[in-house]
Design a protein around this nucleic acid. Structure first.
Lengths: 208, 208, 208, 208
DNA sequence: TATGAATGAGTGTTCATTCAT
DNA sequence: TATGAATGAACACTCATTCAT
């Protein structure tokens, strides 16, 4: 009997995240507008109306799903920052690795899709993303560059670049994989190496 | 009387493009799925059913709108290719200028939005875009690099970069403007200059 | 110039019947509800709105078409009555011939279709048909039987049959041809002969 | 609680047939094309969208309704065949009774209406009806005639009649009742007796 | 006379959401 | 907790009809 209660409680606690997981997959495949509660329910193996026990509206599910994704991204970013030891090329490579991992194959690809498609009506999500993730990423890279300059590895001039530019190709890859992958594949690892090389060649110019 | 006829004819001739213009705006705001014929009609100042005098289905409107956009992009690309005279930095700047103009403020931003959000179900549009535009842009830039190498301006090594990488930051700007512009602006011209500088610094660097 | 006027007048006079003819074909194919003004116009080779110069509503076209058909049937019936000379078998054969001709391949097949499908809302048409055609046909056949009895060809008992019964198989054929012809054909002439034989065998039998 | 569940279940189980019944009436009155889901829903006392819980499309409702009708007809026909004992006149009377019952006042009248009016686009229904009902009826009557000949009741010549002819007046009655009943009634029983008499007088000719 | 332009009412169908159990 | 039943609002699309020329 205790077991039953536990099982039920476990069930109860798990439900919301099961629903979010199912919803996440649907949003990834079809976007917000194209996703129906029926398809989420089917994917979660529950009834359509059960969803309403945990979420008030379709928007609420969406926000929960996106918030979860953002949080994972925040965690990943924090982890990278902590490990930031070594010369510019090495650390920058790690940062770029992480970004590709999340944007191209991870949760953030859904965020990208959704923000591009429906970001207009989701300014709070946009602001959250901006402040929790992008700004931290920006300052991390900026600090990285400063360190490189201080260490004599990078030219003073490196400071003049918009740091968003240095990681921006990752967005291109994420979009290419989403949109054009079926028509023409893109070798992500090669592209990523190309990306890192381009940035380092430009910034570490003083090594010459 | 001639005037009347003219007015009417002018109206008739203008209607399709009026509808396309209205539809274009709606697609930009809400994507294909989120756009209703009612909203297109309202924006065009006509009745919902009037649209059916000129287009058979919602898809037909969409295709007409996208086709127009793709054609404009093709024309713009062709123009750039013709004007491709001068050293690498100059010509590459022109190319990047054109891409930003179309992707960030021009028609192509709708394409980006729609392809990212709903490209899955629009493989024909994806293929059209891929073959008519992207591949031409790619070979143009590749030729540009070869010319730079031949002229001794660029190192042989320049060949090793994925050419898509060299223009990829433009996508980032397009997305930033769409998604984050209201939360935090981005100075497009400065970013673009930064972009051009990064690429040229990396590619032309060896000449030093 | 006189010619032009004539031509135009001829045109003007012909239009309504052209429209009716076109409408007739459409009603035959698709019934009243299934016929659109567009299809009538297309079949008549004119514009949809031109129809409104001659008819106020779709119903008006329909009534005109049905009325025309009824009138033709009346004429055909009158002709048969006039030619009613000879013994019962001969005259009855002529009558049945006429009925089959009109019901199975002629105008009346449309009437049948339409009355069955939409007769409810067309009681005036139904009444017209009833009084102008059916009742005359009935009395014609009744007279024919009386003549046969008077001539000793038929038994007195022949009077006891409902005269509608004697021609009723024609309706069956009309319906079969419309509904089942494609699935399984029916030899109209053989069936008609069978029909005539059945009636005559039953009525004239007593003479033996 | 059990009651409640039962009530609910009874409701759920009853709904489809309630809908079919409502639809049946509408199809009878207005045909397939003329019937709207709104009118079916109104007649069934439910919302238009509730219908979609039980049927996928309007066609599905129609098919279910027709299938039910066809099945009832098949059952009725089978019953008649089983009871086929006695002389020709008796058995034939039973067969005709059944046909009139179904065609004139029963379900099959809808089938008649719909097949006449819209059979063109419903070839599968036509084929079903042809193969499941008409062909069986045909062979039943043919067997009946053979038995009558074998028993010396009917002349060999009876074989020469198209068997469809022998029951065809039933169609006439069905149509008369649908179309002309309000303008001029028809005594179905008297007509039916007349019908039976005509056929028997013609076939049992050898009794003379 | 003839027509192209325009539209309001209506069709089948989908879906997020509510309610009773 | 969980769900099946039910529905109102909305959508793409059709069509008879009106209007201006």
């Amino acid at each position: 009997m205790t077991k039953d209660i536990n099982k039920r409680r476990r069930r109860k606690d798990a439900r919301p995240s099961e629903i979010i997981a199912a919803a996440f997959g649907e949003f990834e495949d079809k976007g917000f507008g194209g996703t129906t509660l029926g398809s989420i329910a089917a994917r979660a193996g529950i009834s359509r109306t059960t969803i309403y026990l945990y979420f008030d509206t379709k928007e609420a599910i969406f926000e929960a799903a996106m918030r979860g994704s953002v949080e994972q991204t925040i965690d990943a970013a924090a982890m990278v920052v902590q490990q930031a030891h070594g010369d510019f090329r090495t650390v920058f490579s790690h940062v770029v690795d992480m970004i590709y991992a999340r944007l191209v194959t991870g949760d953030a690809s859904v965020l990208l899709r959704v923000l591009v498609a429906e970001g207009h009506e989701m300014q709070s999500l946009v602001a959250l993303y901006r402040h929790e993730i992008l700004s931290k990423g920006e300052s991390t890279i900026r600090a990285l560059i400063e360190r490189g300059i201080a260490a004599g590895e990078l030219a003073e001039e490196a400071r003049s670049y918009d740091v968003r530019l240095l990681v921006s190709p990752a967005i291109f890859v994420a979009i290419w994989m989403r949109v054009f992958a079926q028509v023409e594949p893109l070798e992500v690892d090669a592209f990523k190496a190309s990306h890192i090389k381009l940035v380092c060649d430009a910034l570490i110019q003083s090594k010459a």
